[in-house]
Write a protein that binds this DNA or RNA. Structure first.
Lengths: 195, 195
DNA sequence: ACCTGAACACCGTTCAAGT
DNA sequence: ACCTGAACACCGTTCAAGT
């Protein structure tokens, strides 16, 4: 089964981002990679932002799958959460340019569009992880929405600051996986017995 | 005392970002706002990234001052921290384009350069806030570095996700000030008596 | 030391035309 | 329905020249 030109354009854009960041995504470079003329992309996307948006949309679905898999593969909710956190950070580190795209440039978001839907799906899957964690007795007294938001923001903040390179790792946040684990630790005591 | 052309260029770039986002910062627009020819900026900055970097550098110093002021003005460290959090969020909301610039586009960072120094100064001031909080007995058993990183990442993540507009506020994280306060609450019980 | 004007290569976008 | 080639306006950057 053949890939459509549209899908191949998204593939090419994603590859260009991985190779040289979002700046490397010019319509000409994308088109050339697929083997069409430099303005053929306009038959599939409204403009350059729409191509970037399509890449981000796909990556949100990858994150959603990542959260779903963590919940499915670990019987223990806390383990599932820790795996999800580790995978999320690993994903950001291995695709810095594309990770960046997920939350940057609000101009490429059309309200109610596919990107917003994909972002909400990812958030929903993370919420399921947090819910399982709470059902198991951890931080059970906290509102799920707020707890999910706290985890999501911390995770994103850690990855985003690290990728931003405003500080050498050792002088800045240190190892961000340790910091993410710290948050999980802070949520543990609420499970009845406090150490 | 006259402002130098260089400072006026930074002022103009900051104003353009506030008005239309980083995309609106073209060398021609910046130069025109200051009243010089479109390539005069090259006498003061290496390239366009260097101008954006100068704006971000200044904003990091603003954040540093914000943290310092919070610590100075509140006798109670927890109150100081809460004020700092509220001010940080308010700052991001009132200058979304410039806030974005603080951690985005690593290509505009020169290692060891002024932007990195400014970012570290802001982090240091936040660390002082966290230290005062810990001296007062809150979360005293946790490593300061990790605790600061956790707070910084959460704060940045909350603001960045909200500004990214990937979700309607009510369907997404909810009110991010509430989430930030939740983190502070989580750090309280560690002060001896646990509720 | 600081600025200007012209020029170059590159880019997003549009349009008329082709199959 | 999908693509092409030419064209336009705009932009970052460079350079030779001016004071």
């Amino acid at each position: 089964m053949e890939k459509s030109t549209k899908v191949r354009l998204i593939d090419a854009a994603a590859a260009l981002i991985d190779a040289g960041g979002a700046r490397a995504v010019t319509l000409r470079a994308v088109a050339q990679a697929v083997g069409v003329s430099h303005n053929a992309p306009y038959k599939h996307f409204k403009d350059r932002d729409a191509i970037l948006s399509a890449v981000a949309e796909r990556d949100f679905h990858t994150l959603e799958a990542l959260f779903d898999r963590a919940l499915r593969d670990s019987p223990e909710p806390e383990t599932a959460l820790r795996h999800a956190i580790a995978d999320y950070i690993a994903y950001g580190r291995s695709h810095p340019g594309r990770y960046r795209l997920l939350f940057s440039d609000p101009e490429m978001v059309v309200p109610g569009g596919a990107l917003e839907v994909a972002a909400m799906c990812a958030l929903k899957s993370l919420t399921a992880l947090v819910e399982a964690f709470q059902v198991a007795g951890r931080a059970a007294h906290l509102p799920t929405r707020q707890l999910t938001a706290l985890l999501y923001a911390t995770l994103h903040g850690l990855v985003d600051i690290e990728l931003g390179q405003r500080a050498r790792p050792e002088k800045g946040l240190g190892d961000i996986t340790v910091v993410a684990d710290l948050l999980v630790e802070l949520l543990r005591p609420a499970q009845g017995l406090r150490q």
